[in-house]
Nucleic acid binder design. Structure first.
Lengths: 219, 219
DNA sequence: ATCCGTCTCCGCCGCACGGGGGAGGGCTTC
DNA sequence: GAAGCCCTCCCCCGTGCGGCGGAGACGGAT
């Protein structure tokens, strides 16, 4: 029943945090802290060298952040370790980005010692609580529409948004005019403004921009 | 340091599975199997009555399946329990549907006792390993594009797919012709075919259809 | 040997679209 | 009260687009 210990690398720029994590994890039978890193870049090289089973990765780190480091590790190793991203807030953006980058799990800094240990043990096993394969594509898909939060969207006037939404429903200018109860010429003006602001050449490109920017999020 | 036990409800139509789960969980200090259910409908009423902390929910169950039961529980209770969906395969569809329904985690049936216990403990804590709030919207978003798998897509010929992809990049017929190294008239023919098969009136509607059908999944 | 689907291309026609430029009324801002 | 922004609407013009009908060439299926 004796198994090889779960080897862990800690990546966090604050010494206090690393010390605390190490203290908790080292006390656990079957867990072993193999190494530490204080920057994202260092994390990548340390992980590549030590080939641990699990990496506890802070999001905020100098130079290269945790997300990017995760990306590089997952992208460059044949059998990358499970990476648990440690974060302070339940910030949505972080979650999506980290999933897309290849993280296997999340841990909030306010979690207690028990949760930490359990999370590490769990994520070290291959197929327990959810994700990698399934969520990877899901996150990738979501990233496209939620990531940039396009700049031009905020520059559209209210009417222009109305018109763009109807354009994205595949309506002609005349149809939009009827829906909005205005003249066709008015719609043309709004369409022209939308094209200018989105940088689109024609209505098709404008609709594409709307989709890519997640402009249609509210249906 | 003594905390109230984590109360669990098991929902699975196979007695063997329930017995096994109960044996494992009951042996653990701090865990308590509060009740069982053998159908989705029964699961809903049992959970509503017992108000457990965690529900282990099988996907395949007579009458109402686990996904639907999860939906009903999460949708009808002010403070719904954490629901862990138990599944045999890493079937993508199940994962997405379950997330959308409000499940908090996943467990494969082949998981060992240890993983089971850890998963339950973990998911019982409020904010440890990821999800609910964050993944809910993510899953909802994904559902739209992954659900139907439009019928017309399979009817497109290879060339028509090429053309549609370029249409969805916002190119004109002339530009597509250059990219594909064919005459403009040829592209027109393909575009006409695409419009007919997608039921679109113009290229804009065709592009919309492509997006809605998740036709652009591969970039 | 025949048929059918696919890919390739042709002409003609009508129209919705988009570009350019302008104009008036209503609103807030300063 | 002048300046700006937004919404509304007008004309003219060129053209990309889509509908219609047709055709030749290649391949696989029967």
């Amino acid at each position: 029943m004796t198994q090889p210990p779960i080897r862990i690398v800690l990546a966090d720029d604050e010494r206090m945090v690393r010390t605390a994590l190490r203290a908790i994890l080292s006390a656990e039978p079957g867990l072993e802290v193999a190494g530490e890193a204080t920057t994202g870049a260092e994390a990548v090289s340390v992980v590549r060298e030590l080939r641990p089973d699990v990496v506890l990765m802070d999001v905020r780190m100098p130079e290269v952040d945790g997300i990017r480091a995760t990306e590089q590790i997952v992208g460059s190793m044949a059998q990358p370790p499970r990476i648990v991203v440690v974060t302070t807030f339940e910030n949505d953006a972080y979650v999506y980005d980290a999933l897309r980058a290849g993280a296997s799990g999340f841990l909030l800094k306010r979690s207690d010692a028990d949760a930490l240990v359990q999370a590490v043990r769990l994520v070290a096993r291959t197929d327990t609580l959810l994700f990698p394969s399934a969520l990877r594509s899901l996150a990738a898909q979501h990233a496209r529409s939620a990531a940039p939060a396009a700049p031009w969207v905020s520059r559209l006037t209210g009417r222009e948004r109305d018109v763009l939404r109807h354009m994205a429903d595949g309506l002609t200018n005349a149809e939009i005019a009827r829906r909005l109860d205005v003249g066709p010429a008015t719609v043309k003006s709004h369409v022209a403004a939308v094209l200018a602001k989105t940088g689109a050449r024609d209505r098709t490109q404008a609709v594409i921009a709307a989709y890519e920017a997640g402009f249609l999020s509210g249906r």
